[in-house]
Simulated scan of single mutants.
Amino acid sequence: MTTTMSQKAAREGLGSPDLFEGGVFVTKNGVAELFVQTAVDREAEIRERNLERQANALLKLVMLAKKDIKNQRGMSPEETLRRLREARK
């Protein structure tokens, strides 16, 4: 849950990370100036974003493969293995 607090309250609460859990908008004269969150929250956010990117990349590969099959550009398993072996040489 995101909350809002003044700069003064944020400075006074810097020693207690529980205060910033879920993210906090720090305001100056009622205007949001800064967003503070705990390292654990940030790592979870980054991990979630990476999983989302991987899912999108996988979906894109599936759509490209589907398009190739529709256009009859597919390969047999034997042809695929042959090309992989040639590429290793």
Rank of each mutant, 00 (worst) to 15 (best):
F25M: 10
G15T: 11
E48N: 02
E52W: 01
Q54W: 04
F35G: 01
E78G: 03
F35D: 04
N50T: 06
T27F: 01
L64A: 13
E21P: 00
E45C: 04
S6W: 02
M75K: 14
D18A: 11
F35K: 09
L58T: 06
G30I: 03
M5L: 11
E43C: 04
K67C: 03
I69W: 08
A65P: 00
L19I: 15
R49F: 05
R88A: 15
A32K: 03
L19M: 13
G23C: 02
M75T: 07
L58W: 10
M63H: 08
E45W: 05
Q37M: 15
D41Y: 02
A32M: 01
N29T: 05
L59E: 14
N50P: 00
R11A: 09
A10E: 01
K66I: 01
N71L: 13
F20M: 02
R85W: 04
N29E: 09
L58A: 14
N50H: 07
E79N: 01
L19F: 14
K89C: 06
K60T: 13
K28G: 10
R49V: 03
R11L: 12
L58I: 06
G23W: 03
R53C: 09
V40G: 08
L34T: 15
M75N: 11
A87E: 11
A32H: 05
T3E: 03
N56V: 11
S6R: 00
E78W: 02
R47M: 04
N56R: 15
L61K: 13
T80H: 05
M75R: 14
E12V: 02
G15A: 14
E12W: 03
G15Y: 06
E43T: 04
L81M: 08
E45H: 09
E43L: 10
R88T: 10
L14E: 04
K70M: 07
R85D: 09
K66E: 14
T3Y: 00
K8V: 09
V31H: 09
K60I: 06
R49M: 07
A55M: 09
T3V: 08
Q37R: 13
A9H: 07
R42N: 12
E43F: 02
V62D: 11
L51G: 08
S76P: 04
E78F: 02
T27P: 00
D18N: 13
E78Y: 02
E33T: 12
D18H: 11
E12Q: 12
N71R: 11
D41E: 04
V62T: 13
